[in-house]
Design a protein around this nucleic acid. Structure first.
Lengths: 136, 136
DNA sequence: ATACAAATGCAACAATGTTGCAAAATTACG
DNA sequence: CGTAATTTTGCAACATTGTTGCATTTGTAT
């Protein structure tokens, strides 16, 4: 709980019930969560718009980052403290078994060489496969 | 036009006006196109649902593949003949200048090493930056 | 404790994904 | 070439998500 306060304070976000509970949900998840799951975990006690706007605040303040899966479903995950305000370039792994999405901080991938003239700024790598648990 | 017929035939798709015109639109685009752009190019002569279902048919037959951008917007591009029925693993490049999305067939990237237990099946790499034209 | 700023709930609308069903078009076949 | 069987299309309908405006409520600084 102290950490929830710390996160909000570090990012200049006021302590509102919705924000605090959402951070708790994100903390307790061991993988990236969908907006729908957040709503369920919160017991529908907050308006859809509020959750939507809170996710936007969190994103723009680098508290969380979003992962868009093929098909368009979006998941959200807390951004590890170390990466906040630095870069978001890390790998995401979508398990086709349990449907969870995990952040894989290492290794950094090397940017492939692009055709001449193309200038890369950042990337998004989504790997699909089986996670530790589902890979039996 | 002959090629349009060939594509449809090769994938067991009947020759309907909507399909033929959609393939032409995809051929003429030098980058991946959105559903909305397709609709515009077609002059709103086909129902939304028809275009939606045609995109699904094309996708499931590997005539096209879709690219989901951060933010959830989806673009569609013809799958090069050589890659049909083989694999879809290639890089996509989203230019933040002109907003176009390009398929980059080479190089193949090497799958990064994942934490032990994770088994990768395929990936999706979306690079963001400036294309040849916008990179002045 | 109060005043100002920010967050929330609600209404509303757009875009997209998706399905069922009847009408129309395409293909296969005699 | 014409007809029947199969597919595709258009339309209606509904769900989900993204997004904004506005009035009300809440949080924060003084």
């Amino acid at each position: 709980m102290k950490e929830v306060f710390a996160i909000l304070e570090a990012h200049n976000l006021s302590r509102t019930p919705c924000r605090m509970e959402m951070i708790k949900v994100l903390q307790e998840a061991n993988s990236a969560v969908s907006e729908q799951l957040i709503k369920e975990k919160l017991g529908n006690s907050f308006d859809r718009t509020t959750i939507y706007r809170t996710l936007k605040s969190f994103s723009s303040q680098d508290v969380i980052h979003s992962i868009t899966l093929e098909g368009g479903e979006v998941r959200y995950a807390l951004t590890p403290l170390k990466q906040r305000r630095i870069n978001h370039d890390h790998i995401h792994f979508h398990c086709s078994g349990c449907n969870n999405v995990f952040c894989i901080p290492e290794p950094k991938i090397q940017m492939p060489e692009l055709p001449s003239g193309f200038l890369a700024k950042n990337f998004d790598l989504l790997i699909e496969g089986l996670c530790k648990t589902c890979n039996t």
